[in-house]
Design a protein around this nucleic acid. Structure first.
Lengths: 339, 339
DNA sequence: CTGTTAGCGCATTCAC
DNA sequence: GTGAATGCGCTAACAG
């Protein structure tokens, strides 16, 4: 049995309230000698305040929740999630908040999911890249749980911290266009992920607005993973009439595409240019540094937590923040050698 | 104000215990019609059980804590941590446990740290690669908090799930030796991290037992990060008399070493062979797939959580598990061309 | 079979 | 200035 303030009170023959005030340094003052004795005994008995009990009465837990995009095996292998988590952890530490990682809610059952969120263990929650169909976020907000999202869908009444995906992909396309590319393909991410959809749309819009040739067979689909990038690349580049450049929904698929291209005997960037999205560490460490669209996920996460904390502490509601991403030109793009 | 079982009881003019039993399906039976009405009203009122309150009485939180090796800015960028976290999350989900990530304890102040751990929010804790000086782990254990460690130091009375670092490094050295290498250098990790120390020791022991030449200037030191691998490699390989092969304390530094070698105009593996440690994803995605010692961190984490849960649920204490790692030979090693 | 009640550990209000 | 008492929401022992 753990030692409680009651134990201390009894041994010192004083009341629990006095002990509580002495331990917390207020709000009511306690004579110095009494305070000293309380502190001494607390240390001697190895007293640890029970935060659960404190939460019951204060309503604050000093813990913020983090909900990953989905709950499947190995979600925590996603580089995107790492960056977000890192930013969240960095900022949370500054606010003396710990992080509760939800591992087991059920995306398909909003009821259950929201119950888990609202069960009292957290003061607020950060959703990482929620899907379009993520009713949970809206439900949680409407039930007065402070929420923000990092990336993902712009949702009704929920502040989102994200980059302008269309601006980013447009910059990638413009870069290729300026280099002289006219036959440009795309490897898109999950079709239920807002970011992926917007990037694909921007690709299509650029193709149209610049009267570039478009073939559905120049577009591949994956779920943001490296192997899917490989598969899509193989399909696209093994056609007789294939593009000279590829934009990708994220860096991982771009790296997969890069590896596959090399394995197919293509030279990058001479035979095919590749552009990623995110500027992940992997894109820097790749065989050759990837040209990519920089999405400062860590910074966005920091901003999201900052706004969330202000709200939790009684400040104004967080507001959506959309950053224009910049293109980072590195070694995976060049002018086409045989246009 | 959130709705409670008391609200439901009042509206239905029944007792809170009946509501509680109806909601929880036991331990005492409730007539079907009453149960039905309770469930209906609960749904209608959007009732959510408060887990904090439940924890107060049951003593269980269904949350396990995770403590990173240290709490500095950007710890969550460590690939090693990702693998561990991923395994922990995978297994935790199976046990319906969420994860509390400690972001703010102070490693230098064990008192404070332990207080945070023991404040009632978790049922047990996984320490990831604790340093040698990690008094906290032993203290937490002695205060009856169920603990396990993944990797890191073998600590008094705490079950550790780790690989045999010496066996792993020895295998790496033997592989190079068998290829014909006699001049072998090493890039070691942090000198306060048990794993790094053991790997360095194994390197030294192999050198001695095989009567290989040893120079302190062939040994570099880093903190497991990619840039430190670069720096160490540059120092080592820019000497007139330099090694033909390098073993590294982890994959990240090996990748740094690889990049630096290439940048220095050296061919890998012809001019210099490089062996990593971990078999991280990055080691597979690198410019050329790294020969490395496979440390199945994810699997170890899964095993650690499994054992932890058994203990939490009243089973036997977890026991230390030490796995012999295997060498994975890939493209970064070959026989020396000019020995 | 069901209602009343005693805590869980703490912060805080109320009464002295 | 200090002790007693209340309640946070819930579970489970106890009493009817």
């Amino acid at each position: 049995m753990a030692v409680t303030i009651k134990d201390i009170a009894q041994q010192l023959k004083i009341s629990v309230s006095t002990v509580s005030y002495a331990l917390n340094g207020g709000p009511r003052s306690v004579p110095d000698d009494v305070k000293k004795r309380v502190l001494a005994l607390a240390r001697e008995l190895n007293y640890r305040p029970n935060r659960i009990a404190r939460s019951m009465v204060t309503g604050r837990t000093h813990t913020i929740g983090v909900v990953p995009p989905e709950v499947t095996e190995d979600v925590f292998l996603s580089p995107y999630l790492h960056l977000a988590l890192n930013g969240i952890a960095n900022e949370a530490r500054k606010h003396k908040q710990d992080i509760l990682l939800f591992t087991r809610y059920n995306e398909t059952d909003s009821e259950e999911m929201v119950s888990v969120l609202l069960d009292g263990r957290i003061d607020g929650v950060v959703f990482i890249a929620p899907h379009f169909n993520h009713k949970n976020v809206e439900m949680a907000t409407s039930l007065h749980m402070p929420c923000v999202t990092v990336s993902g869908a712009p949702l009704e009444g929920v502040a989102s911290f994200t980059v302008n995906n269309k601006v980013g992909m447009k910059a990638a396309m413009q870069h290729l266009y300026d280099l002289g590319h006219r036959k440009i393909g795309h490897i898109a991410g999950r079709d239920d992920m807002p970011d992926a959809i917007l990037r694909l749309e921007a690709y299509r819009e650029f193709i149209q607005s610049h009267d570039l040739p478009f073939h559905e067979r120049w577009v591949g689909y994956g779920e943001f993973k490296i192997n899917e990038g490989r598969d899509a690349m193989r399909k696209i580049m093994s056609q007789a009439d294939c593009p000279t450049a590829i934009t990708c929904g994220n860096d991982e698929m771009a790296i997969g595409a890069l590896h596959e291209a090399l394995q197919m005997g293509l030279r990058v960037p001479q035979d095919v240019s590749i552009v990623g999205f995110d500027m992940s560490q992997a894109s820097t460490d790749a065989v050759l540094p990837l040209t990519t669209v920089r999405q400062p996920v860590t910074d966005l996460s920091v901003a999201a937590v900052k706004a969330l904390m202000i709200f939790i502490e009684g400040g104004p509601s967080p507001e959506t923040f959309i950053l224009n991403p910049e293109l980072v030109v590195r070694a995976s793009t060049a002018r086409p050698t045989h246009p």
